[in-house]
Structure formats: structure tokens, C-alpha cells
Amino acid sequence: MIRVLLADDDEMVRAGVRAILATDPAIEVVAEAGDGREAVELTLAHRPDVALLDIRMPRLDGLAAGAEIIRAAPSVAVAILTTFGEDAYLARALDDGARGFLLKSGNPRELIAGVHAIAGGGAYLAPKMAARVIDRLRSTGLDRAASARARVRALTARERDVLALVGEGLSNSQIATRLGLTEGTVKGHVSAILTRLDLANRVQAAILAHEAGLTRG
């Protein structure tokens, strides 16, 4: 049985979504919330498999509520209930860890299929939204790449070489061998890179190297 929490401040919408989900005997709505704060509280109390959250809710919007749920109850899969045209919010929801985007006014079969996919550990995007979301994410990715390239210009040529190899997953010893440097020198370069680019660790450095196009992968 897939246990679902349903959160929307519009009672008519909740009734409609609940009626659709009730047509599938494998899905049970275990709790309903009328605002985002209540959605978080009920999720923590009931621990459903899936939390379906409207974007626009009082006290706490669906995106903020979803982020709280993901942090506090990572076993609960969060899906955003949306209307066509609200996809401007979806990149943020993706970054926060949401697993699905379901249309309130879409095909009922798609809503049920989405709940099953998300509960099973997958992801689901309402087909009508797919092209627009992909375009938005592609644009966001291009912006991130441009920003990353601008950041690494602050590095010396040797530091960029080191950052590229960090991005490829090499250790300091391996980087030293590849570049003909001592391991201590590489360690100094890595420390300088993290400080100059305000990065917390090598993982963030590796991600930046990929976004800036420094790696071969």
C-alpha cells in the first residue's frame, strides 16, 4: 500500500485529487493538510511514502515545506502538485530534492502513475510540463557553466591544471605524478584553490571543475 499525504489549501482541489487516488486500491491518503506548516507536521507524524504538496499555500509554501520534509524525513518522497505554467518554481524544487511534478488538472492516470513511480524510488514529470522544464533546466545549466568559467579565471594556469585533475577524481599524489610536482606543492595549490574560490572541500571543487568545462568527462 502506498501511503500519501495530500496538502493543498483549496478543499475542492484536495477532494478532487483524493477522489482520483481513491480509484487505485494500492494508494491510501493517510493525512491531508491545508497549509505548508501543517503538511510538515503531519508528514513527521504519519511518515507517508509520498507527500503531495501544492506550491501556493499559507504559512509555508509547498517548496519550503518540501525542503523541510526532505531534510527531516528523507525516506518520504516529495512531489509538487502544480498547475500548468508554474514551472518557474521547479528548478528550485529539483535542487531541494523533490522527486516529482504532477499536474492538478492533468490526466488522472498520469497522477496515479506519478505516485507509483515516486513511491517506487523513481521520479516523475507530468508530460505536458516536460519540454518547458527541460528548456528551463538547460538554461540554468548554461548560466551555471558561465558562472563557473568566470570564477576559475581568478586562478593561475597551474591552479587550473590542478583543479581539472581534482575534477577527474585524482588524489594529491596522483596529481603530483601527472604534473611533475611534489605532493606538498599540489596540497598547497589545492588549499589556495579552495580559499580563493570560497569552496568548502574537494567535492565542491570537483563540481566546479566539471561546470567550468575543465575536465575531460
Results as ranks from 00 to 15, higher is better:
146 A>C: 06
106 G>E: 11
69 I>N: 12
19 A>N: 09
95 D>R: 15
107 N>V: 14
141 G>Q: 06
90 L>H: 15
59 R>S: 05
145 A>S: 13
189 H>Q: 09
30 V>S: 07
28 E>W: 00
64 A>K: 08
215 T>F: 05
127 P>C: 08
150 A>Y: 00
205 A>F: 04
1 M>V: 06
52 L>R: 08
79 A>D: 11
126 A>V: 02
90 L>W: 15
180 G>V: 08
88 A>R: 14
111 L>V: 05
111 L>Y: 11
15 A>W: 05
58 P>T: 05
80 I>V: 15
181 L>Q: 06
2 I>G: 00
16 G>H: 14
152 V>D: 01
4 V>H: 13
108 P>L: 10
62 G>V: 04
31 A>C: 02
45 A>D: 09
18 R>P: 01
76 V>C: 13
126 A>G: 11
156 T>F: 10
7 A>L: 09
210 H>Q: 15
107 N>M: 10
150 A>R: 13
8 D>G: 12
30 V>D: 12
178 R>H: 07
5 L>R: 01
113 A>S: 11
60 L>G: 01
83 T>R: 15
158 R>D: 07
149 R>W: 11
124 Y>P: 09
102 L>K: 02
208 L>T: 02
42 L>I: 05
98 A>K: 01
131 A>H: 10
15 A>C: 08
66 G>I: 04
207 I>E: 10
109 R>W: 05
78 V>R: 00
73 A>F: 01
77 A>F: 06
148 A>C: 14
37 R>Y: 04
128 K>Y: 04
16 G>R: 08
20 I>K: 07
80 I>N: 06
140 T>D: 02
53 L>N: 02
140 T>K: 13
117 A>N: 01
10 D>C: 08
133 V>M: 11
61 D>I: 09
24 D>P: 00
7 A>K: 10
10 D>L: 14
181 L>P: 00
77 A>I: 07
173 S>L: 03
217 G>N: 14
105 S>K: 01
69 I>P: 09
27 I>W: 12
209 A>W: 03
42 L>H: 06
39 A>N: 03
10 D>P: 00
49 D>P: 03
208 L>K: 08
29 V>T: 04
214 L>S: 11
118 I>M: 04
